[in-house]
Nucleic acid binder design. Structure first.
Lengths: 204, 204
DNA sequence: CGAAAAATGGACCGGCAAGTCCAGAAAGCT
DNA sequence: AGCTTTCTGGACTTGCCGGTCCATTTTTCG
């Protein structure tokens, strides 16, 4: 599928994906037609189907992958170096900033719901994103343990899972309420949880 | 809108809402047509528009309200009596059980995304649900404080917000991954957070 | 240069699903 | 009973939007 041979072709394909991502963020999947994407990207119907022979679903899937890649990228380099209290704090700030900038649109959430159940592809993209995300959080906690900053008794996997859930929920709530209170609360409470298990701190 | 005068009419309207809720859970909003709802509920097109003159959007909104009401109901009586460690634990079990039973379908999440942006009504329903939910959690924490089970220094509002975010995220992740690990992790970590602030426990 | 392959434009088609309409049955009211 | 209101059935219309098709242009490459 989508055999792209020339540089021009590759550029067009990328333009379509990026433009589609924009439109989808603005209008949501439910209200976006191929014509919207076509006009935004300055392409024709035949181009859309040339690069995505399986039609809308395939295009949406490509956009989902595109967005998923950005999610982790936008948290770098902090997410990759969670080995001190300061770096965790910087990462926290980066996450808040990224989602406050993104505003009320969760491109992946809606894309998942649209393509979701039927196509296993969408599910795979989201699952894989979450797996990597959580894995990096866990790795950061292990780094704290290795540096003897956090008790070795901390259940890293469970804590990482809870933190990730808090972020997801915080972002979800931003979509409905429009403000980032819950996201911040989840992040800060999660960091508190870690700090309370700092070596030399309280028990439990 | 929807002036229902007779008992028969009221019954039909209720049948439509409940049947629609079923179909929507099974198929998702994106793949549900009025005809699906019509056939499931044994009604005719004109009945649908008789009870919901503004068409599909109005019906979806009614379903959203219906589902929202159930969310808190299903957590009772536990959610209303969070005044001991045991009751918090029972509530936690009730939440896990409810969502495990519900499986991979988040009726509100998808409804919100569909009707979402355009109609302010959907947003209001979700916002109000979240407000009440969080308020009840906060009240439970205050109860613990009043009984001198938890430090009075606990930031109740922030903690309740974080816990709610964790639940939302946990449920979201259940939709993609199909298992309740994250929901449990969020709940258990949240309860840990409270217990770590039990009177006579560690510092912070 | 010239043939083949890739890229593009845009008219057109067809189906589906939301919404309309009206006739007729049932229920309420006095 | 008889009149009004509510409720119901289902045929019909309508517009939108995903997808098809083919002609034309541009690029690649020997």
């Amino acid at each position: 599928m989508a055999q792209v041979a020339t540089a021009k072709g590759r550029a067009t394909r990328a333009r379509i994906v990026e433009g589609a991502a924009e439109v989808l963020r603005e209008q949501g999947v439910a209200f976006t037609t191929l014509d919207d994407i076509r006009s935004r990207t300055g392409t024709s119907k035949s181009q859309l189907f040339h690069y995505f022979p399986n039609g809308k679903d395939e295009l949406l899937l490509a956009v989902a992958q595109f967005e998923a890649d950005r999610v982790l990228e936008d948290q770098q380099p902090h997410l990759g170096r969670l080995d001190s209290w300061e770096s965790w704090q910087r990462w926290r700030d980066a996450v808040v900033e990224r989602y406050e900038r993104q505003g009320e649109h969760c491109p992946l959430g809606s894309l998942f719901l649209q393509v979701g159940r039927s196509r296993p592809g969408a599910r795979a993209i989201v699952t894989e994103l979450m797996r990597q995300w959580q894995q990096q959080l866990a790795q950061g906690m292990l780094a704290l343990q290795a540096k003897d900053l956090v008790s070795p008794e901390l259940d890293v996997d469970r804590t990482a899972a809870a933190l990730l859930a808090g972020i997801q929920g915080g972002v979800t709530m931003m979509m409905s309420t429009g403000d980032s209170t819950h996201l911040k609360a989840a992040l800060d409470t999660g960091l508190d949880y870690l700090r309370a298990r700092a070596t030399g701190s309280g028990d439990v």
